[in-house]
Structure formats: structure tokens, C-alpha cells
Nucleic acid binder design. Structure first.
Lengths: 240, 240
DNA sequence: CGAATTTTTGACTTCCATCAAGTGTAGTGG
DNA sequence: CCACTACACTTGATGGAAGTCAAAAATTCG
């Protein structure tokens, strides 16, 4: 990955916007489907926006974003409920796309995040001329459906313990696909948000995390900081 | 798993307009986005296929379907589990589209169904020349995501009773949007399938249906035949 | 009709939500 | 630095909802 970026740096010196060259998601999502000319144009017109944890991400106005690449961080999508509470319906990890247009959801930074925002008008323009981009977006949406359905089953059938184990596994794998034992990371969600996401209560989340710690599969260093002791055992208890 | 297509009614050139004009889904899904010329072409090349309840619907081979309009009936989409069992992940009602391409799911006729099958090649051709069709398909997929997320919440937070009530409500509304009290219909799913769909057990489904009958909100005439007594009360207990 | 399947009902158990109290852990301001 | 508040998290006790096991009743179908 890194080598490829360096090679491109050599081939197109100064032509591709610097921020794109160094971008972790340069070869992910729609950016991977862009020609270098298109990437140049995109690089000029996109804005890199930073959001601190807990900040809502708005997309409004005429030039509303319909697509953002999550450069760093974790974003959660939630739906408001009639009783005023919210339900987290999806988590989006870096490096990946943020298909905000997909549903009437609120996107909120779960951790400090950076998002590369592509204006609606620009994306439409590109989509019209580059079928590959359109295809990519469509495929991502299909994956989204599949993912959501998969998690639906997870919520319906698994025990609280399995749900928690599974979520931790998800954090590990999405956070660093090559992560193994000894991997240390921060939980991107509060206990309350985890509960929301999994359809549990805070108390149950806390209890099951304690149980997971008691089995020595993970170590909870402090409130949010977790160390993975056994990836294989984590996988075993996650009910997949 | 063996017999797929029970009846395959081909309709001939020249009669197309009649076929499509009389079609219940003429103004739904992608058909609504077609010009009359395109509709004629589609009419020529689509096949109306009938599936009896319980029959799996396969789309394979070179000319694999990627889009079918459900003309009549109810189709369920399921995912196979590692233990050999299946999980129903979505229900598709007539008149609507059957976006089979959306995920690696098995589509199976829940009730006797008729599906208007559009060959892959033809759809690709239309999509290439008619942006509105592409947009329609994309929008339908987005709706699919939204719907799935909505149901995910439903599975995670609602009581068994609310889930059942909600499903009955869904059957009523999707079966006949104008249906009111006294409306009689057949449950398109077995208790076991309902359990699968809602993340419950057969016993619980049976108990909650009995409870729903005890409240006089519905009447269960025989195993699958149900009469709606009070739409408003059904809505009240469905937890929406 | 009789066999097989689906559905209902009952008794018991388990898991998780609820209610309640206690323990950190920041963050603010005196 | 401490006192104060606010918030996030943990732990315990209890009850209820739904799962499990088991068997009867109803429906379907050959």
C-alpha cells in the first residue's frame, strides 16, 4: 500500500493534490475508481473536515455532501426514535466511505474523525462520466444492505455475551485487520452507545465486558482502553 | 430445491403493450421509469414466471436475472447459516421489485407468486441509456438499507408481542394498503418462518398470536387465515 | 382414513431488563 | 489542592419475558 503511493508520487509529481497522495483512503472506495485527472479535480474541490468525538456531522444546504470518505476515525449512524432517544444503526470505520445519502440517518463522529467531503454537484458530474464510480457506489450500497442484514441476524439470535464478543472482534478487525494478540486499542463507543447499537442495556454491556475480562480473552486497562489477549478465543465465543 | 420454474408463460411480440399495460406493477419500480418504446422492448424480452409457495427462485447462468418485479405474491429472502438452518432476512411484497443482486441471498416464494423476469443483459442495456432507470434501482437499494435498519431496531428493542403485531400490520398494509377492519387475509408465512424472521421461537410466535386473538384485535379463522378486527388497536400495540 | 407436519398449550428454566446503590473519573471553580 | 458536581461505569438483588423441553391438538396431505 505504502509502496504504491510512493510510486505514484514519482510518476505524477505535483499533479495530484498532496492531500490525496498521502491520503490513507486513496485506493479505497470511489477514489480507487478515479482516473488521475479526475483525482486531481476531486482533490481540488474536496474539503478535509475534522470532527471531534461526539460531534454531529451535518450535510445540508445546496452543496450538500452525498459522499464522504472517512479518512480517520469511526462514525456512527443513528435514527431518532419517537421517544426522543436514538438508536445507532450502523458503524462506519476508516478507511471507508460514508454513504450519507443511503438513509435518513444522523451521522456523528464516535471518535475524533477526519472526513473527506465531496460536494454533491461534483460527484454527480463524475458519476455521469465515469461508470466505474457509479458502479462502486452502487456496490458499496449493496454491501451495506448485506452487512445490515447480517447484523440483524446477530441482534436477533445471539446472546448478550456473543454480541459483545462479536463487537469487540469487529473493533479489532476493522481497526487493524492484521491485529493479533497483544493488540491494544480504544473502544470507539461508550458503554451506553454499545448498548444502543446491540439492543442491550448499559448494565448488561458492563457485565458482559467484565465476563469477557474474567475469561482473560481481553484485558481492560482503563475505562475505554482494551488489550486483546486471544484473538482465536475471542472469535470462538463470538458465535460466528 | 429441485424444481424451480413450474410454469413459464412466454408472451409474444406484438402483444407486449397489452401485457405490460395490464400489469399491476406497470407504474412501479423500474417500469415506471421506462419510455413507451423501452417498455415495448422490455415486454418482448421479459418472461412472467409463476412459482408456487415454498418454491425457491434461482437466477443463474449467463443470462441471470438481476431484477424481477414481483407481480403477485410474497417472496422471502434468506441467508444460509453455518449450522444448515436458514434465516429469513427480508420479505418482498407485490407490487414491488425483487433486487436479487443486492446480496447473496436465496429468494423463495412464500406464497404463490408471479415474477416478471428481466434478463441481465437487457437491464444493463437499458441502464446504460436511461439514467432514470439506474437512479430508480439505486434508490430502491437505498430504501432497502433503510428498511433493513428499521427492522433491525425492531428486532433489537421490541417485545415479542409488539414484533408479532407489527408483522401482522405489515401483512395488512402491504397486502392491501387500503385495508380496514374486517379485512381477511392469509398469513404468507408459517409460524416457523415468522419465528425465523422475527428472531423468536415457534412457541413464542404461537403464544403471542393467541394473545393477539385474545385481545380481539384479530380473529384467527383457521391456521393461516386471519381477519382484522381493529386496525387502530393493532397499530397501537405494534410499538411504532 | 391415517401419517406427518404444523400449531397450540403447559411446566420449568434462563437470560436479560429493571431498580438501586456504589465506585471511579474528569472537569470546574474556590 | 480540595470540594463539588456531573457523568460513566460497575455491581448486586429481583422480576419478568422469552427460551427450552415435552406433549397434546389441529391441520394437511397422500
Amino acid at each position: 500500500m505504502t509502496q504504491v503511493i510512493l510510486t505514484n508520487t514519482f510518476i505524477y509529481p505535483g499533479e495530484i493534490a498532496a492531500k490525496c497522495l498521502a491520503c490513507p483512503v486513496r485506493f479505497a472506495g470511489i477514489c480507487a475508481a478515479l482516473s488521475s485527472d479526475e483525482l486531481n479535480e476531486v482533490g481540488l474541490k474536496t474539503t478535509r473536515r475534522k470532527f471531534t468525538a461526539g460531534t454531529p456531522i451535518f450535510f445540508e444546504g445546496d452543496d450538500v455532501l452525498i459522499h464522504g470518505n472517512i479518512v480517520t476515525g469511526v462514525v456512527h449512524l443513528s435514527k431518532g426514535l419517537s421517544d426522543g432517544r436514538q438508536q445507532i444503526v450502523a458503524l462506519q470505520f476508516s478507511p471507508t466511505h460514508l454513504p450519507v445519502k443511503t438513509a435518513r440517518v444522523t451521522a456523528q463522529a464516535a471518535t475524533d474523525s477526519e472526513i473527506c467531503a465531496i460536494p454533491n454537484s461534483l460527484l454527480n458530474e463524475i458519476v455521469g462520466s465515469n461508470a466505474k464510480v457509479e458502479e462502486t457506489i452502487y456496490k458499496q450500497t449493496l454491501d451495506e444492505v448485506d452487512e445490515t442484514r447480517h447484523r440483524m441476524r446477530s441482534i436477533g439470535r445471539k446472546t448478550a455475551f456473543e454480541k459483545i464478543a462479536n463487537l469487540i472482534l469487529m473493533f479489532v478487525l476493522k481497526g487493524d485487520p492484521g491485529a493479533g494478540n497483544g493488540y491494544r486499542f480504544e473502544l470507539p463507543l461508550t458503554r451506553s452507545e454499545i448498548a444502543d447499537f446491540l439492543g442491550l442495556t448499559v448494565e448488561t454491556v458492563s457485565r458482559k465486558l467484565t465476563k469477557l475480562r474474567a475469561t482473560k480473552i481481553i484485558r481492560i486497562d482503563s475505562g475505554r482502553s482494551v488489550t486483546l489477549n486471544s484473538l482465536s478465543r475471542l472469535h470462538d465465543v463470538s458465535g460466528c
